[in-house]
């Protein structure tokens, strides 16, 4: 019960000693932990929780950060990605936050991580048993774009009335000849709760189904936590005559040659030239280390984006 004295007394600079382990006070952690357990007990159901203001803005991963803060311990190895990459600025910022407030080891290696926090992607390397995937969620309610009122959507989930969602998908088919959702594609959890998988591309949806890892979803601003336990059925909505399908590319990754990963398009100039590279930066780097070469292998983007390098390229970019 002696929580106020739970202040770090180590050799950290003084300004960092004012905060408790993993930033949140113990009462807040307990509240989040209770919400996580109920979320795991009712897969896909959105548990309301007393989300707190974090030192990062709402919309920038506060739900994921609060989940991580409630579960992380000094024995964890933490990986944080944004758009699949470890070196995007917001991922760097969040990773640095936990390295500071939770004395935790960090990694870019998906296989070595015990907690993987992510915005918009699931890593290409299959998740393993014992890993926890924490996804940042801007809008937890899959029905929100169809019905703005929380009182209505909560009732729809309570009585399993998902007709509106199917109608909307069907309208897509009439308009475009196929289901138009490309990211944040709605899924059904254990055939009961309709759930937003967060804005991951639908390419990643199959990775959720029967995953051996614990999947936690946190929406800080909307104050909701939900979860999918390991080995749980996650079905992407579709119709018999319009089955669910994922994205495919005609190109391979220009750097590592992968033809199975999600690709980002990189604009090379204003003449319409572009290249495609793996969105999962660690997956791509690992393949290159193992000798896989793409058609543009050796391009400056393939250089390891450590800080000094990123900074150098940045300066070059400015000089040009």
């Amino acid at each position: 019960m002696n929580e106020i004295s739970e202040i770090k007394i180590d050799n950290k600079p003084p300004q960092e000693r004012y905060y408790t382990y993993a930033y949140l006070d113990e009462q807040t952690k307990r509240m989040i932990r209770r919400a996580i357990l109920k979320a795991l007990s009712i897969p896909g159901y959105q548990v309301p929780f007393g989300s707190r203001e974090m030192p990062l803005p709402y919309g920038w991963g506060t739900g994921g950060i609060q989940l991580t803060a409630a579960i992380i311990g000094p024995n964890d190895v933490y990986k944080c990605i944004d758009q699949g990459a470890d070196d995007t600025t917001n991922a760097v910022s969040i990773r640095r936050f936990f390295a500071t407030v939770a004395d935790v080891a960090t990694t870019e290696d998906t296989a070595k991580a015990t907690i993987i926090q992510s915005r918009h992607r699931i890593p290409e390397r299959p998740l393993q048993s014992g890993q926890i995937m924490v996804l940042q969620v801007p809008q937890p309610e899959p029905l929100r774009s169809l019905e703005p009122r929380e009182t209505e959507t909560r009732a729809m989930h309570a009585y399993e009335e998902y007709g509106l969602q199917y109608v909307s998908l069907y309208e897509n088919i009439s308009a475009y000849g196929r289901i138009a959702a490309t990211a944040g594609y709605p899924v059904m959890i254990d055939e009961r709760y309709l759930m937003s998988p967060s804005p991951i591309p639908k390419f990643d949806n199959p990775k959720l189904d029967m995953s051996p890892a614990i999947l936690l979803f946190g929406a800080g601003r909307e104050k909701r936590i939900y979860a999918v336990p390991p080995y749980t059925k996650v079905r992407s909505l579709d119709f018999e005559d319009y089955p669910f399908e994922t994205q495919t590319w005609d190109e391979v990754c220009a750097l590592c040659g992968s033809d199975t990963s999600y690709l980002d398009e990189v604009v090379l100039d204003d003449q319409g030239n572009h290249m495609f590279v793996c969105s999962d930066s660690h997956f791509c780097a690992e393949r290159r280390e193992n000798g896989h070469l793409g058609p543009l292998a050796g391009h400056s983007l393939a250089q390891k984006s450590d800080d000094s390098n990123a900074n150098r390229v940045l300066q070059e970019g400015i000089a040009k």
Binding site: T89, D307, A310, N311, E316
Partner: peptide, 14 residues
């Protein structure tokens, strides 16, 4: 190079 601006890295943030 727009790509690099996104991948600023830790020193860019600092």
């Amino acid at each position: 190079m727009a790509y690099v601006a996104v991948k600023g890295g830790e020193r860019a943030i600092t």
